[in-house]
């Protein structure tokens, strides 16, 4: 076999393209007529056409290579199809909804919590703390009834309230007031807004890492002697004013977390679409 380098073709690319399209019957009527006229008068053009036809014929006659094996899928190990409600899609939707819920929760905390005392709103444990602080005696009978049922509530109250001063206040007034807080919480949780019960808990859980530091202080103050109360009582008015301020951080954190969740969900969705 001749191993010399292929000869460079000096025919214009435009002519080669015409000839190639002519082979495939892809020329317009005027183009075909003009080319056929030239083929009749240009032997070199005619020769190039025959060589191109021969090349196409050789390729057409090339035998297909036999299959080395079958490529059918084994039903036992076939990959899972990406359905409409795929796991990834569900995660994106769930994350987005969770983020939206957190943003809504934070908004409610910011606006209702600043109002300082709409205890019917369960997402405002700080507000409930404030209400309990203002009227510690009132919920006591209810607290006595609710105390056995609110074993989990103290954890919710403590966790949801990075406002350590408020918890300290609740603890200071009396151990019963803690129960009363929880009792009030339990009441409102039970009767007022069951739909929001989980959200405060979730918010509480998310707020938990930030609240761990204040917790020892709460415990310490809770165990402080009665004498400490008198010393700290003057601090209660400022503490009473603090609920609006202390409600902001958790609401802000919740809002930020919600925005992050929404951004991640949206980003994941857009990235997945871009990859298609």
């Amino acid at each position: 076999m001749n191993t010399s380098q292929p000869q460079l073709n000096s025919m214009p690319d435009s002519d080669i393209e015409l000839l190639s399209a002519y082979i495939d019957d892809q020329l317009t009527e005027p183009e075909r007529a003009e080319l056929e006229r030239r083929l009749g008068t240009e032997p070199r053009l005619r020769a190039e056409l025959e060589d191109l036809r021969a090349t196409a014929a050789v390729l057409r006659d090339l035998e297909p290579r036999p299959l080395p094996r079958s490529f059918t899928l084994d039903p036992a190990i076939a990959p899972r199809r990406r359905g409409f409600l795929s796991f990834g899609w569900a995660m994106q939707l769930g994350g987005g909804l969770a983020g939206f819920a957190l943003v809504l929760l934070a908004s409610l905390q910011m606006f209702i919590g600043v109002g300082g005392g709409m205890a019917a709103s369960a997402p405002a444990p700080a507000a409930m703390m404030a209400a309990a602080t203002e009227a510690p005696a009132a919920p006591l009978p209810q607290a006595a009834e609710m105390a056995p049922a609110s074993t989990a509530a103290p954890m919710v109250a403590a966790a949801a309230a990075p406002e350590s001063a408020q918890d300290a206040t609740a603890a200071r007034n009396a151990p019963d007031s803690m129960a009363s807080d929880t009792g009030a919480e339990g009441e409102s949780s039970g009767a007022g807004a069951p739909a929001l019960t989980e959200v405060p808990t979730a918010a509480a859980a998310m707020a938990l890492p930030a609240t761990e530091a204040p917790t020892p202080a709460i415990s310490a103050s809770g165990l402080s002697s009665p004498g400490t109360e008198s010393l700290e009582q003057p601090a209660s008015p400022p503490a009473a004013k603090s609920p609006p301020q202390l409600s902001a951080p958790p609401a802000g954190m919740i809002l930020a977390l919600g925005v992050v969740l929404i951004a991640l969900s949206l980003g994941s969705f857009l990235y997945g679409r871009a990859r298609r």
């Binding site: 001749n2 380098q5 292929p6 190639s20 190039e48 025959e50 090349t55 014929a57 390729l59």
Partner: peptide
């Protein structure tokens, strides 16, 4: 598609021609 096909055919034609592998009835 047309452009790539024509250029590809021309290059293959040159290779096969150099190897004297084009079918004789078509060879100019």
């Amino acid at each position: 598609v047309k452009s790539r096909l024509s250029r590809g055919r021309a290059r293959l034609r040159d290779i096969l021609r150099a190897g004297e592998l084009l079918p004789s009835k078509f060879r100019h």
